[in-house]
């Protein structure tokens, strides 16, 4: 007999993989957003190189928030959430697993893709590696904020959720971009450290908030 948490992991992974929309959706969104920038700003190599880190970060931020919006939504609608609550198991671990699975399938591919697109936007290779590192630290934060947005608006699933959490994501965005821009200096480590610290403290606070937000639909 499999444990509750293992079932959560397997269930969510299978659901994710069985649908091309949930898997490809964020990738398509990310690629099209990236393409919008050169179309809007022109193909000037130097200009794009200067903007590239920001372009990629913003695109990932939006794609990530969108893909995590409905992470608890389906469970709420189809009754799975009822069963989770009835099981009396620790919801903290349950929510963490759900967010992790979603991050693994939607954010991790984007990080690899961002390395690819960084060449198309003329970002120096060293900076691109730092970009990947900042995304590796930053996307889990975005995922948790996205999940929180979804948890807050379980019933309606509207734009309110993401507009609330985007301002909260700003430190991650700023620190990530600062790190990339100072990829030649020692300050880099300072920003990376801060980003890691932001991630570290976000985990308990945001997951607890997600649970609080879910709970308020069951009162």
């Amino acid at each position: 007999m499999k444990s509750f948490y293992f079932k959560t992991f397997q269930r969510d992974s299978k659901v994710y993989l069985s649908r091309s929309s949930s898997f490809l959706g964020p990738i398509v969104f990310f690629l099209i957003t990236i393409t919008l920038y050169p179309l809007a700003f022109g193909s000037d190599e130097e200009k794009l190189a200067e903007l590239s880190a920001g372009i990629i970060w913003i695109s990932i931020l939006l794609a990530n928030l969108l893909s995590h919006q409905f992470i608890f939504n389906e469970d709420y609608k189809d009754g799975s959430l009822d069963l989770v609550l009835a099981s009396g198991k620790s919801l903290f671990l349950w929510a963490s697993i759900k967010i992790f699975v979603n991050w693994y399938f939607s954010s991790l591919p984007l990080i690899f893709l961002s390395l690819l697109t960084s060449f198309m936007l003329y970002l120096p290779f060293d900076a691109a590696l730092i970009l990947a590192l900042t995304l590796f630290l930053g996307t889990p934060i975005l995922s948790m904020f996205g999940a929180l947005a979804g948890a807050l608006t379980l019933e309606r699933g509207n734009i309110v959720g993401s507009s609330i959490v985007i301002p909260m994501c700003l430190p991650a965005l700023i620190l990530g971009i600062l790190a990339i821009q100072s990829y030649k200096n020692e300050e880099l480590f300072f920003y990376i450290f801060l980003l890691a610290a932001f991630l570290f403290f976000s985990i308990p606070i945001l997951i607890a908030s997600c649970l609080g937000a879910i709970r308020l639909h069951f009162e």
């Binding site: 069985s18 189809d78 799975s80 009822d82 069963l83 009835a86």
Partner: peptide, 14 residues
């Protein structure tokens, strides 16, 4: 305790 709700808790894609 076993609970069976109005919404069955089944996943369409599984």
């Amino acid at each position: 305790v076993f609970f069976l709700g109005h919404n069955l808790g089944l996943k369409d894609s599984l």
